[in-house]
């Protein structure tokens, strides 16, 4: 059974040349990867296949012998994903190993058709599995990129700022969906603890619409903040939103609302025992 692998391993050098040759110009993508890098990747993959014991099973990629090959292909796919290759280009890289191996097997088998057929079937499904592995890893790599970007975007969209000692503000901009509101809620509450703030101002001047679900989330945030010992002030409610809130029957009775962020800030200052006063300018007519 392991004959095929044995044949591959004995002809490593000639196979490498044939494999490089069989890679169509289209999938080489010289714009994305240099010839030297491609050559060294190809060498590495082939060397890894050749380094396993000759009796390793070709039908089971999960076998311990293939561990390092799996790892190499996975990291190769992930790096290709970030280089801008398509999944099929990445799979074709592996699949292009087929024809040189087939040619090699054909050479070795001579006229024994049964032997040839058995070997080709075996190596065919082995290389298919390798190609599928690159596709899986490729998608996994993409997913990681997407989820990292999502996290970064959510972090960007929730800037909690300290206005004064003990007063934080969360200026919300853009449409709020349920997932974002939840993140906003958590980071505001976290900021309250971290900055030890008794007052939190949620300013929704930049929010175009508020639906029932978002309003409920805002109310829950305000209630949770109260349970922690902080007071929330909602500011910047646009007239349309005020209308929606009333039409939807959302009860904002227990929530302190102010028209402008500055009014909310003033209230928070007052409640924490501070006032803002204008310093009288001394008029000096002679100067």
């Amino acid at each position: 059974m392991a004959q095929v692998l044995n044949v591959i391993q004995r002809n490593q050098a000639s196979l490498l040349t044939a494999w490089m040759k069989s890679m169509q110009l289209g999938i080489r993508r010289r714009d994305l990867i240099s010839e030297a890098e491609l050559q060294s990747q190809t060498e590495e993959v082939l060397a890894t296949i050749c380094s396993v014991p000759a009796e390793s099973p070709l039908d089971n990629l999960n076998a311990a012998a293939w561990q390092s090959l799996r790892e190499i292909l996975a990291s190769l796919s992930v790096s290709r994903a970030s280089q801008g290759f398509t999944p099929s280009e990445t799979a074709l890289f592996i699949l292009s190993l087929k024809s040189p191996v087939f040619a090699l097997v054909r050479q070795q088998s001579g006229n024994d058709a049964d032997q040839l057929y058995a070997s080709i079937t075996e190596i065919d499904s082995f290389i298919d599995k390798l190609a599928l592995l690159t596709t899986d890893s490729f998608i996994h790599g993409r997913d990681q990129v997407i989820s990292r970007q999502q996290e970064e975007m959510l972090e960007l969209s929730t800037p909690v700022v300290t206005l004064w000692d003990g007063i934080v503000a969360l200026p919300l901009i853009g449409t709020l969906d349920s997932a974002r509101t939840q993140i906003v809620m958590e980071s505001l509450l976290q900021a309250i603890v971290q900055t030890n703030s008794r007052f939190a101002i949620i300013d929704i001047t930049g929010v175009p619409t508020v639906d029932t679900l978002v309003a409920q989330h805002l109310l829950k945030t305000i209630t949770a903040a109260r349970l922690m010992g902080a007071e929330c002030i909602l500011s910047g409610i646009r007239p349309q939103i005020a209308q929606t809130i009333v039409h939807l029957g959302i009860n904002l009775q227990d929530v302190i609302t102010k028209a402008k962020l500055s009014d909310a800030f003033k209230l928070a200052l007052e409640r924490s025992g501070r006032t803002v006063t204008r310093i009288e300018k001394t008029i000096r007519p002679n100067q």
Partner: peptide, 21 residues
């Protein structure tokens, strides 16, 4: 914070209790 969020979700806002940070 996580406890407060959960408690609100559970439906308990404990209106009669005074709180502090």
């Amino acid at each position: 914070p996580a406890v407060a969020i959960t408690l609100v979700e559970l439906g308990m806002s404990l209106p009669g209790i005074r709180t502090a940070l």
